[in-house]
Amino acid sequence: MSEWLEKQLPKLVLAPSFVAILIFVYGFIGWTAWVSFTKSKLLPRYDIVGLIQYDRLFVSPRWDVAFSNLFIFGFLFIVISMLLGLLLAILLDQKIRTEGIIRTIYLYPMALSLIVTGTAWKWILNPGLGLEAMIRSWGWESFSFNWLVDPNMAIYTVVIAGIWQASGFVMALFLAGLRSVDDEIIKAAQVDGIPKWRIYLSIILPSMAAIFLSAFIVLAHLSIKSFDLVIALTGGGPGYATDLPATYMYTMAFSRGDIGQAASSAMIMMAVVFAIVVPYLYSELRAKND
């Protein structure tokens, strides 16, 4: 008996986590998927009626705004963070003695809560007393920077704060990548008199494809999950101009009491993550097992 127990012990230790993941991740996804096919309102109902919630979702102007915002925000956030992170990594890779301090400065926003970041930028970008007022007081009376309260521009303030938070992290990823490139090849290229920018463009960057992919996955994932930043910075406003799927889902679930809409919007978020992450995880796990 005790020998059997000893043999099964590893499985028994892993079992509770396995069961927990099955229930709280996969079971819950299943529950949400199920409810998204019902007429649930304030309380969940379990009789499936088809795609009615998705129909409602796709004709809702508010969801339309939230979903297009995801792409505006996601695209700008990912592209600019990657470019800025790459630039900073290359600048820092030039054998700088104070690299440690500079790296610490560039990366610290990543340690902050997005609520803190949102609060700080909300203050800086507020038109009355913030950046706008400051530049006006310098003599440029007609200067205007009121994106925070402009429905057409407010989503870009989320981009600004998001980039500030995450670009240092991308830099850290790229810096690690730059450091892992084989020194011998670079030295050989230098001996051949190839200019530095060409070395970066044709040798170093192509060898970092995996890091680019990782950075993309992390940033894409961050942008889909972005919730705190919008809540703290704009509260989804003005109106619902800066809604993202994450805030839409939350509003439906906890303030509107529309569980069906909450579930279906959560499933769309899930589908977007799925489309990005699954191919990546699959290739990663396969590469490891080979």
Binding site: S17, F18, I21, L22, F24, V25, Y26, G27, F28, I29, W31, T32, V35, P44, H221, I224, K225, F227, P245, A246, M249, Y250, A253, I259, A262, A263, S265, A266, M267, M269, M270, V273, V277, V278, L281, L285
Partner: peptide, 17 residues
């Protein structure tokens, strides 16, 4: 692998249940 994938889900999908 199942656990790893669990790291990536948007938590909105588990909020209601």
């Amino acid at each position: 692998s199942l656990m790893l994938f669990g790291c990536f889900i948007p938590f909105q999908v588990v909020l209601l249940p």
